[in-house]
């Protein structure tokens, strides 16, 4: 479903990704872990073309993201993204945040989009907040709206870029629960996270990145329980 080959990304002379190879299968949940500055977020952002790719190939649903002739917006409609800082549109009510892309990008009729938005908001537990403005919501609520907004496009893949890092510890759980439900329903997910508990329980595979390369990957039980690389065990000993 996602195939990445020898991906390099440079910011000026600073090489952030130094040759990443990676595949994500349908319905697979992959967690990317690693120290900050390891390139996890940049890698994720290359998957939907928010970062331009320096060299290598990225394909999503057989669309070549790395090919400049590809209409990137076609890919993005199939790939949902959730950001660390939510990035809800502050001038739109919750329900309008969710319906904006379906109505404007996919030309779904308004009423149909609205019904779907209400269902999604109910799913993330915010049926009572549909007419609130984002500014009046807590961080956890905003992030759940952001998940509903991404789901409204019926994506086949969801990308999560540190979705709980900006949240207070006591409300991290409400967002993780929603993500766990999604995973159980068979959504393909790539999650950059510092929540090791979530990675261990929910992921099918954990990928440990450091210095722009994949150091180690495998089933969470193995990566967390018996890391094969010293860098992995060093990192885990600091965060666990």
């Amino acid at each position: 479903m996602i195939v990445v080959k020898d991906l390099h990304k440079k910011f000026g002379s600073n090489e952030v990704l130094r040759g990443i190879d990676c595949e994500v299968a349908e319905k697979e949940v992959v967690c990317l872990i690693g120290p900050s500055g390891s390139g996890k977020s940049t890698f994720l952002r290359c998957l939907n073309g928010l970062e331009t790719i320096t060299s290598g190939t990225v394909s999503v649903n057989s669309h070549m993201v790395s090919d400049s002739r590809t209409d990137i917006n076609v890919v993005r409609r199939q790939v949902g993204m959730v950001f660390q800082h939510f990035n809800l549109f502050p001038h739109l009510r919750v329900v309008d945040n969710v319906t904006l892309a379906p109505t404007k990008v996919s030309r779904v009729p308004r009423e149909q989009a609205r019904q779907k938005a209400l269902a999604l908001l109910d799913k993330v537990g915010l049926a009572d907040k549909t007419h609130a403005y984002p500014g009046s919501l807590s961080g956890g609520q905003q992030q759940r709206v952001a998940i509903a907004r991404a789901l409204a496009m019926d994506p086949t893949v969801m990308l999560f870029d540190e979705p709980t890092s900006a949240l207070d510890p006591e409300i991290v759980g409400e967002v993780l629960t929603v993500m766990q439900t999604l995973a159980r329903e068979g959504m393909t997910m790539v999650v950059v996270t510092h929540e090791m508990g979530f990675a261990r329980e929910v992921a099918d595979r954990a990928i440990f990145m450091d210095g722009g390369v994949v150091v180690e990957e495998g089933p969470p039980a193995q990566v967390f329980g018996a890391p094969r690389h010293e860098r992995t065990s060093n990192f885990l000993s600091k965060v666990l």
Partner: peptide, 20 residues
């Protein structure tokens, strides 16, 4: 981040400008 969120939803530049 708002511009990125709009782009990640598949909006064109003009749509991002108008709606976001």
């Amino acid at each position: 981040g708002l511009v990125e969120a709009g782009r990640a939803l598949g909006m064109r530049g003009s749509q991002v400008f108008r709606h976001v």
